[in-house]
């Protein structure tokens, strides 16, 4: 059965209310995402890009419109979606192993099969020796990998990365983005990345969606085709087309230092 896109965002709008007034964060967003695709969403700060991700994750209800995953309307969090918040958010009081099991615990799905899956991922991604360590004993990159395994352990089809690397320093960030992209490709997942880093958006994605200033609307969608050998985000930054995409998106973002 291969009918329609994996994620269908249909005329989604979102308005926030506060005693000071109402703010329109998103306006009439429509977007389809195919299975296996990697989509980056960029936009000026406050354009509602994280709100869009929260709506897809079922954490925020849209004011109008709806999101469909596999044709099912999203009404709350489901295990089809794995959400990666800003910075790794590993729980300091849990060992890496117990952090990895967190999602399964919440879903009441800790059993020998899921545990074996999680253990296999820890082995594959070089964290098995650290399973009994606490997060404070790990480097930034290892923590990010552990966080990704925690998300993958519930076996979601779509990964939502919400500025997931923004807490890391620049060098670690490049390496981690590379690793995460490779893991996502290897595990055959669909991913949506929200970022304010244009280079990160281009280097990781098949498509880059540019949002306007608040209220966020889709300004343009770029299909990214880069001629590079290694096909890793770091390698792709070397591609000749990279600068061109960067400049076009940069202009569209229309950033002024205020």
């Amino acid at each position: 059965m291969r009918a329609g896109p994996l994620v269908r965002i249909e005329n989604v709008s979102k308005t926030y209310h506060s005693p000071e007034g109402e703010i329109s964060a998103l306006q009439d967003i429509s977007l389809n995402i195919a299975e296996g695709e990697f989509v980056s969403i960029v936009g000026p700060s406050g354009c509602g890009k994280s709100t869009l991700l929260n709506i897809i994750a079922g954490l925020t209800e849209p004011s109008a419109g709806a999101v469909y995953i596999k044709g099912q309307k999203v009404t709350g969090p489901t295990s089809l979606v794995g959400y990666m918040p800003q910075s790794d958010q590993l729980f300091e009081w849990r060992t890496i192993w117990r952090n990895v099991l967190l999602g399964l615990e919440v879903l009441n799905k800790v059993n020998s099969e899921t545990k074996m899956q999680a253990e296999k991922m820890l082995r594959t991604y070089g964290l098995y020796e650290f399973r009994k360590a606490y997060p404070s004993q790990l480097s930034g990159g290892m923590r990010q990998r552990a966080a990704l395994i925690r998300t993958l352990a519930i076996n979601p089809e779509i990964l939502l990365l919400d500025e997931a690397f923004s807490a890391l320093d620049y060098q670690t960030r490049l390496v981690v983005a590379d690793e995460v992209k490779q893991i996502i490709t290897r595990e055959n997942k669909t991913a949506i990345l929200v970022t304010h880093d244009i280079s990160e958006a281009i280097s990781m994605a098949d498509r880059v969606v540019v949002l306007t200033k608040r209220p966020g609307k889709i300004k343009n969608i770029h299909k990214i085709i880069l001629t590079c050998e290694s096909h890793t985000p770091i390698g792709c930054r070397e591609a000749v087309e990279f600068r061109d995409y960067f400049n076009r998106i940069w202009k569209e973002l229309d950033v002024h230092a205020e």
Binding site: A57, L59, S79, G82, Y83, P85, S87, Q89
Partner: peptide
């Protein structure tokens, strides 16, 4: 307690 940690749990449907 960090809002993002709560959000992470909510995303699992906690």
């Amino acid at each position: 307690v960090d809002e993002n940690k709560i959000k992470l749990l909510k995303s699992f449907g906690a």
